[in-house]
Each structure stands twice: as structure tokens, then as C-alpha cells.
């Protein structure tokens, strides 16, 4: 009996059950803290018609960008896209749909989904294209729009360390959307740099408690840098 042991030993096993036309919530900001192994596996599986909820869509040839190569993505729900020639081409050709969503609203849509909140009011986007057609309510003299949460059939998450029970710690700004994504998947897959035994991580330092995690896998990561900026030593 595996009990609380969430570890799987292959990406095939980690992404088992993914089917065409499903919705995937992905952690990561730019190329920082992205689930590289899960993305590679989705590419390998050739699953099509996917809706992907992620702040960005990678770059040409890396990150979520590789899923565009075989036209696996039907729709992106993102706050900022297009660092990516193939993306723009498919968008202009009408092969790809984009729902631009403010970054804070996107984070909150994931967080709310994971917390069992179907929708929430926010001032962000009121009076803009984002607010068009959405329910408006006034609270304390200010206007707010109703935004619905987004649940994924899968959530794919990149952590730093986890114990076998799926308690996850993120590293630096590679945290970003990952903790919210982890709560919002019907099946949540977390890939980490190191898996340790229960008890080795300090319980007070856990970012994502294991209750949210269904499958855990140790991967290797390229961690490509998008904007390499340095100062002189």
C-alpha cells in the first residue's frame, strides 16, 4: 500500500490519463519555475486540443512553446504572451485562441478554484475589455467585476524539494504561480529537483501541503534564462 507516498517513477505514469481537449493549469513565470518534464511528456504524448492556463506560453523551442510545434494547444489563458514567433503566427492564422487575463486575476482564479470558490469580485479590469459582459457590483462606492475560477483536469507544477508525501518547497521566485496551480488540478503532478523522506523537511516551511498533490516525480531541469542581466563584479 502506498499510503501517502505520491512518488511515481516515470513521466508516462505522471501524465497518465491526459486526453485531448483537457484543461491544464501550469505553474511558472516566463521560463522560471516551469514543469519542464511534464511539458516534454505532453509533447511526446501528442495530446491535442488543449486549453492551457499559464501566465506565459514559453518561447520558441522551450517551455510551453514546444507544444505549439505540433499544434497541441487550442487555447491559452494567460496575462502576457508572444515572446514567441510561432505563437504569434498561430494566433494570426486563427489556429490558436488567447484569453488575456490580468496577472492577479489569473492567480486568484487558480487560488479560488483550489479553495472551492467558484467566482469572486475584483476591481481589476472594471471598465476595460476584460470586464465586458461580466457581472458588475458596487461595494462601498466602488465597482467590481465577477470573475470565475478555473479548475484544471491536470495541474503541472515545478517545485524545488518535496518529501514522498508530496509536501513541497519552492525555491526563490521559481515559486510564482506554482502553489496556486497545485491546488487547482483534479490531478496535480509535481516535479521537483529532489525528493526526500518524510520528516526531512521542516513542516513549518512547507509551501504546498501534500494533500493537494497526486503524483510526485524527481526530474532534471535545464532552467533556461530568458533575460540574462548582470552587473560588473
Amino acid at each position: 500500500m502506498p499510503g501517502f507516498d505520491k512518488v511515481v517513477n516515470s513521466y508516462e505514469e505522471a501524465m497518465q490519463g491526459l486526453e485531448d481537449d483537457m484543461t491544464i493549469i501550469a505553474g511558472g513565470f516566463g521560463l522560471c519555475g516551469i514543469p519542464e518534464g511534464c511539458i516534454a511528456q505532453i509533447k511526446k504524448m501528442g495530446t491535442k486540443g488543449l486549453t492551457i492556463v499559464s501566465n506565459n506560453c514559453g518561447v520558441d523551442g522551450f517551455g510551453l512553446g514546444i507544444l505549439l510545434e505540433d499544434k497541441q494547444v487550442k487555447k491559452m489563458i494567460s496575462s502576457y504572451v508572444g515572446e514567441n514567433a510561432l505563437f504569434m503566427q498561430q494566433l494570426l492564422d486563427g489556429e490558436l485562441e488567447v484569453e488575456l487575463t490580468p496577472q492577479g486575476t489569473l492567480a486568484e482564479k487558480m487560488r479560488a478554484a483550489g479553495a472551492g470558490i467558484p467566482a469572486f469580485y475584483t476591481a481589476t479590469g472594471y471598465g476595460t475589455l476584460v470586464g465586458e459582459g461580466k457581472d458588475v457590483r458596487e461595494f462601498d462606492g466602488r465597482k467590481y467585476i465577477l470573475e470565475e475560477s478555473i479548475k484544471g483536469d491536470f495541474a503541472i507544477v515545478k517545485g524545488w524539494k518535496a518529501d514522498r508525501y508530496g509536501n513541497v518547497i519552492y525555491r526563490h521566485t521559481a515559486q510564482n504561480f506554482n502553489p496556486m496551480a497545485a491546488t487547482a488540478g483534479k490531478i496535480t503532478v509535481v516535479e521537483v529537483e529532489e525528493i526526500v523522506e518524510p520528516g526531512e523537511l521542516d513542516p513549518t516551511q512547507i509551501h504546498t501541503p501534500g494533500i493537494y498533490v497526486d503524483r510526485l516525480i524527481q526530474g532534471t531541469f535545464e532552467k533556461r534564462i530568458e533575460q540574462r542581466t548582470v552587473r560588473d563584479a
Binding site: 496575462s79 502576457y80 504572451v81 508572444g82 515572446e83 490580468p102 496577472q103 492577479g104 476595460t128 476584460v130
Partner: peptide
């Protein structure tokens, strides 16, 4: 080119 609002609306 439309790249998105990022965090500006928030």
C-alpha cells in the same frame, strides 16, 4: 502586436 496586460490592470 497584442502581448497582454501582465500585471498592469491589477
Amino acid at each position: 502586436l497584442v502581448k497582454g496586460m501582465g500585471g498592469a490592470m491589477d
